[in-house]
Amino acid sequence: MAKLSTTEPDFETPEDAAAYDRWFRAKVQAALDSTEPDVPHEEVMASIREIIDRKKNGATRLAG
Rank of each mutant, 00 (worst) to 15 (best):
Met1Pro: 10
Ala2Phe: 05
Ala2Pro: 03
Lys3Tyr: 05
Lys3Cys: 04
Lys3Ser: 08
Leu4His: 03
Ser5Cys: 10
Ser5Lys: 11
Thr7Met: 10
Glu8Ser: 13
Pro9Val: 02
Pro9His: 04
Asp10Leu: 13
Phe11Val: 00
Glu12Gln: 12
Glu12His: 07
Glu12Leu: 14
Thr13Asp: 04
Thr13Arg: 00
Asp16Asn: 10
Asp16Met: 06
Ala18Val: 02
Ala19Cys: 04
Tyr20Cys: 06
Tyr20Met: 04
Tyr20Gln: 09
Asp21Met: 12
Asp21Pro: 02
Asp21Glu: 14
Arg22Gln: 08
Trp23Asn: 08
Phe24Asn: 12
Phe24Ser: 09
Arg25Pro: 08
Arg25His: 13
Arg25Trp: 10
Ala26Lys: 08
Lys27Tyr: 07
Lys27Val: 15
Val28Pro: 03
Val28His: 08
Val28Glu: 10
Gln29Lys: 12
Gln29Val: 08
Gln29Tyr: 03
Ala30Lys: 12
Ala30Tyr: 09
Ala31Gly: 11
Ala31Glu: 10
Ala31Val: 08
Leu32Gly: 12
Leu32Cys: 09
Leu32Met: 11
Ser34Trp: 04
Ser34Phe: 03
Thr35Asp: 10
Thr35Ser: 05
Glu36Thr: 14
Glu36Phe: 09
Asp38Met: 06
Val39Phe: 02
Pro40Gln: 05
Pro40Met: 01
Pro40Asp: 03
Pro40Trp: 01
His41Met: 14
Glu43Tyr: 06
Glu43Phe: 03
Glu43Met: 04
Glu43Asp: 07
Met45Phe: 06
Ala46Glu: 02
Ala46Phe: 02
Ala46Gln: 03
Ser47Thr: 08
Ser47Ala: 15
Ser47Met: 14
Arg49Thr: 12
Glu50Lys: 15
Glu50His: 12
Ile51Cys: 01
Ile51Phe: 06
Ile52Arg: 01
Ile52Lys: 02
Arg54Tyr: 10
Arg54Asp: 12
Arg54Glu: 13
Arg54Thr: 05
Lys55Met: 13
Lys56Leu: 08
Lys56Pro: 00
Lys56Gln: 13
Asn57Gln: 15
Asn57Phe: 02
Ala59Glu: 02
Ala59Asn: 07
Ala59Leu: 12
Ala59Val: 03
Thr60Asp: 13
Thr60His: 11
Arg61Ile: 01
Leu62Asn: 15
Leu62Ser: 13
Leu62Met: 15
Leu62Tyr: 13
Ala63Ile: 02
Ala63Thr: 03
